[in-house]
Structure formats: structure tokens, C-alpha cells
Design a protein around this nucleic acid. Sequence first.
DNA 1: TTATTATTGTGTAAGATGTACACATTTAAA
DNA 2: TTTAAATGTGTACATCTTACACAATAATAA
Lengths: 248, 248
Amino acid sequence: MTKKPTPTAFPTHAPHLIKDAVKLIASYPKVPITVDCVIFGFEENELKVLLIRSDLEMYKGFWSLLGDNAKDNEELDSAAYRILKERTGMNDVYLDQVRAFSHPQRHPGGRVITLAYCSLLNIQHHELKIYANELHWHSFSSIKEMAFDHKEILDTCYAWLQKRIQEHPLGFNLLPDKFSLRELQNLYEAILGVSLDRRNFRKKFASMGLLIDVGEMEEDVPHRPGKLYKFNFEKYEKNKRKWIGIDF
Amino acid sequence: MTKKPTPTAFPTHAPHLIKDAVKLIASYPKVPITVDCVIFGFEENELKVLLIRSDLEMYKGFWSLLGDNAKDNEELDSAAYRILKERTGMNDVYLDQVRAFSHPQRHPGGRVITLAYCSLLNIQHHELKIYANELHWHSFSSIKEMAFDHKEILDTCYAWLQKRIQEHPLGFNLLPDKFSLRELQNLYEAILGVSLDRRNFRKKFASMGLLIDVGEMEEDVPHRPGKLYKFNFEKYEKNKRKWIGIDF
DNA sequence: TTATTATTGTGTAAGATGTACACATTTAAA
DNA sequence: TTTAAATGTGTACATCTTACACAATAATAA
């Protein structure tokens, strides 16, 4: 998902040239940088987002994204993974950089630039080790107000997600390994905020050939159980380019 | 194009709370931030990009993006507009934030995080006031090597442009006010790197209804001249949402 | 003035995809 | 045994995509 910037190979140069470069950089104003992670999940037919309580007294009681400052010489992608790990224990999650938020008054303590990172994950797969202050999954639609400009960041990431899920079949990241077509459709409907024709939805996914019938049925549903499928990751990886642009 | 972050309305609080917030921020490492602008244009059937010579002795002779440091308390979007203006005199141009590049060794003078901004413009409309060191348009495809990690940034922005131009009919930003369908098609072919069927291309744009026949013909072409069109910006703005997803 | 060259402008048929829509079947629960 | 709720399935129609050819026009060169 996220493309890691590769190190720049710059020619090694005479020390006085390096000194010049260092001097130039030293003349630039410096800014504290933070990373905020927007972690989406899906459960009980609802899009959820992982939040903590703000640790600033000023925003006491407000919900806040999982964020912290980037360390010296730390790549931002690495910072995002580190912060997520520190606060939730999660390890095996992809994060995508979404954008920077840099309004000079976005933080009451002074100027901070933050980079928003976003991820989709399967809530069942990631037990929360609650290292952070009141770490909880929240129904996305119930979040009206947040600390700092975090509501704006959240909304930007939601828009990013809506777009993203139509370009790649990432819905699978949000579901259990085995899922029914109804669950898959509910997911798309929840994220896109539309209702979709059941037959056409099934036809669409059938024609993509990305679903493997695992030969099992749903259990413990109060109605006729549906077949369970798993996602054909192998085929997806092979034909990645093709799936861009899924229309419903 | 670019969505400006809106100021956060945070409740005014007791001074000691503000002090806490300030203290928190003060404990964060600080990083120099720069902005680099990738300005694409189109001329002589070629995608072009606006570059300057690196002003670092170390990268003497290398081409470099239009960049500079963000100032204290300056929003990054504003910084990008300011820098573009300072270096080229250009005023009336949209810039979109693309992404941050933060590899700790990306600059020989030490850690600098840069935010890439991207724009498409009509070369004829924007006479360059050359405030910068050897500011020139370059054929995109001729650029093989650049200062710092600027080649990587350029390539990322090119990929962004390819995607972007298929989601919105932004090709128009790159063309003169009046253009022929051939010019429009050349533009798409150049940016997407494919060749398109002429009849189908024309049909597609005709059906979008975004072209207005200005009742004039091309001049000074060594063959039968084509009709000239202008872009129906008004209609585009009204139906913006609809145009997402232009397939050829 | 004429012939040559390059490019414009135009339509259609076949295939692929999207959309709207209904009914018998299956399970759990009452 | 009935009821409720959801599954599984196919078709016709409209829309969009793709492939493809030829006469008309203007500029240029002979």
C-alpha cells in the first residue's frame, strides 16, 4: 500500500560542501511534526474507528486520533508504525499516508504539523493491548466532535477510504478470513453510504473471480445461512492493476 | 483543487491549560520543513516540467524542483503558493498537495521533510519572470537525474497526474483557451502514455458536453485545419462529481 | 493549376458492462 | 407447523466500449 521513499544516493562530496548544505538547513525554521493514525474497522455492520481520549487537559473528555510526535531522524512512515504499535500493540497493519495538516493554529500549544496515516483492519484479528488512554472502537457515524482538528482529519480520511475502496477491493482487509456475501455487501454499503442491488453486487464479485468458496456455511444466524468465502489474495496481487475502478 | 484546512476552533481555556499545551509541544523534536512544487505544462505535444538549477554547490549542474523552506507559522499550502510566486512570478495557479517525503538522509545537509505540491498549467498563459536560477521548462521524459530525491518526487507526481487526469478533465488546464480536438487528444496520449482511437476519443468528449465550439478554425497548420473549442468550465463546476472516472 | 500530403470529420455494428427486477428455497424461532 | 428473514439464482434492456474506413479540406510543392 504505502510506498516507502527510497534513500537518496547523493554523491559523497568534499567536507566543505557538506558544511554548506548543513549551514543551509540550519537556517530553516523548524517545526514539531506529529503523525496521527486513523484506523478503520468494521463490526456489527458498522464502520468503526479507533480512538483514544485526548491526553491534553485542555481537551479533557474529547476523543482524539492515535498520534504522537515523530522522533529525530525518523521517517514518517516508520513513525506511524511505531506509534500505532506503542499505543495498540498492533504490528501487522498497513498504513497509508493521506495528507499533511498544517494550519498554524491547529494546536493550542503552538504550531505543529501533522501527517495523517490511514489503515483498514479486521477488528477480530487485532486484539487491542490497551497501552493508551481509553482506547476504543467507535461507530464512525457517532463521532461529531473531536480534539484539535481531528474531526477534519477523520473526515478527510473517510473520503480517502471511500475512494480507495472503489479502486481496490480492500474491503477484504476489514472482514474476517471467512465471510458471507451479505457481510461483504454490508461493508460496501456502510462505507459508501449507498444501498446496492444484491444480485448485481454478487454478480460483480463473481465476475472478478476474487472469491473462493470455502465450502462452509454461516452459523448462528437467525435465518437461512449463506455460504462462506475467502479472498483470493494471490489472484488479486497478480492482477492488481486491473481492479482499479470498481463501479457499482 | 486543494482543500484548505480550516482553522480549528478550540475553546479558549485558562492560561495554565494553554501553558501545558505549549510545554507539551516544546518537548517535541523539531524538523525543518520545505515545500517542493512540481509544475507540469504541455507544449509541442510534450509533457513539460518546470525546473531550476540546484542552488547547492554540492548538486551543481543538477536540476531541482521549485522549493524552499516553510516559514514560521506558515500554512503549507500558503508556503507552496508563496514559493511558486517568488520563484516564477506566477500567481493564479492551483496547487495540490501530493505527499510528504521524509527519508532522514534525503538531504545531505541533514534531516528535512518536504511536502510535494503539484500543478498543471498552460505554458502560454504564464510568462516566466525568471527570479530563479535558470528556470526552464523541460521535457518530462528527458529528465533522468535530479538533485536530492527530486527525481522520486517528480515520478510520484507524474503518477499522481496520470490518475488525476482520468478522474477529472483537467487536461484543459494545460491547453490554450482555444484548442483543437487533436491537441486535446495529444495531451491525453502524452500524459497517459498510450495511443487512443481518434473517433472514440472525440465521441467521448462530445458526449460529456464540456466542449464549446468557438466557431473558429486552427490557423498555420500545414494541413486541413480543425475546429477550435473552449472548455465549458461552468458546466464542469456544476457536475463535478459526475466526471470522476473517465475511461478511454 | 494541379497533384500530393496530412489531417479533419463522421457512423455503425458487435461486444461488454451496468441495471432493474421476482420467486422458490432454506434455516431458525415462535 | 407456521412464520420470518435471508439466501440463491437469470433475463431483458439500456448503456458504454471498441474496432474500424472513407470522403472532404487546406496547405504545399511541382
